[in-house]
């Protein structure tokens, strides 16, 4: 579904990601794992054409045979608005502080798939409930909710729109273990029942082992290893991967 080929990113002349290549197969869960600052989030930004000002991306990233790095802004908007949904890493800052959550959740989910506000409430209330949130949050402002609650709100939107490709950048970082388990189950369900392709960025090897089919290991801006999760866990090739896997126990 997504094939990244020799992707390099420079910010103000500094190379952040260096010739990374990996493949996200359709209908599977692929996980990117790597230490903090290794360029995972920047890779996502490059794919979505939302890099900060002063940065450049080179290489190719084919999504349905369209090169995301070469298409027009208009085509990119269309893809972002209908094919891909992204749960960003910083949930606390992902919402407009002066608009009520209900309205924002609708803009992120219901509006996107042309549901009426009434339909939205019907469906969203259930999803929020599954994630342990009451529908009262719809009347609240982002600054009245915790980081974990906001993270779940964004996840709720992803579950609502059922995109073809779901990108989730450390979506469980602010959740306790119980909620993490819950979310992993929902993610699996989405993947199995809807066939949603998922690109999951995480620090947590347990989550990778639990849900992912394939994994991409990044280290200092480079992809050092790619492979099936079971194989990589069994026989890691790269020295960094070995160290990473050892640290798990």
């Amino acid at each position: 579904m997504l094939k990244v080929n020799q992707l390099s990113i420079e910010i103000n002349g500094k190379r952040i990601v260096d010739g990374s290549s990996f493949f996200v197969p359709r209908g599977r869960i692929t996980s990117i794992i790597g230490e903090s600052g290794s360029g995972k989030s920047m890779t996502i930004s490059a794919l979505l054409n939302i890099l900060p000002a002063g940065s450049k991306a080179a290489g190719q990233a084919f999504f349905d045979n369209k090169d995301l790095l070469a298409i027009s802004n208009k085509e990119m908007s269309a893809i972002r608005g209908s094919q891909i949904f992204t749960v960003f890493q910083d949930a606390l800052n992902s919402f407009n502080p002066s608009v009520k959550m209900g309205k924002q959740l609708y803009e992120f989910s219901g509006r996107r798939i042309r549901h009426s506000v009434a339909e939205f409430h019907l469906k969203m209330d259930d999803i929020l409930n599954d994630l342990g949130l009451s529908k009262a949050i719809m009347e609240q402002y982002p600054f009245e909710l915790s980081g974990g609650m906001l993270q779940r709100c964004m996840i709720a939107c992803a579950l609502y729109v059922r995109p073809r490709l779901l990108i989730a950048d450390e979506p469980t970082s602010a959740l306790d273990t119980l909620l993490q388990k819950e979310f992993i189950e929902l993610l699996k369900g989405l993947n199995e029942k809807q066939g949603t392709t998922i690109l999951l960025i995480t620090h947590d090897l347990d989550i990778v082992a639990e849900v992912a089919d394939k994994m991409v290991i990044m280290h200092k801006g480079k992809v050092v290893e790619v492979g099936n999760v079971a194989e990589v866990f069994e026989r890691p090739k790269n020295a960094y991967t070995k160290r990473l896997l050892e640290s798990r126990f």
Binding site: L48, I50, A53, S77, R80, G81, S82, F85, T86, F88, D90, N93, S94, F95, N96, P97, E107, F108, R111, R112, C157
Partner: peptide, 14 residues
């Protein structure tokens, strides 16, 4: 330039 604007734009908010 705020983060929430990028998030909205990346997810197809009008």
């Amino acid at each position: 330039r705020k983060y929430y604007v990028t998030v909205a734009r990346a997810n197809g908010v009008t």
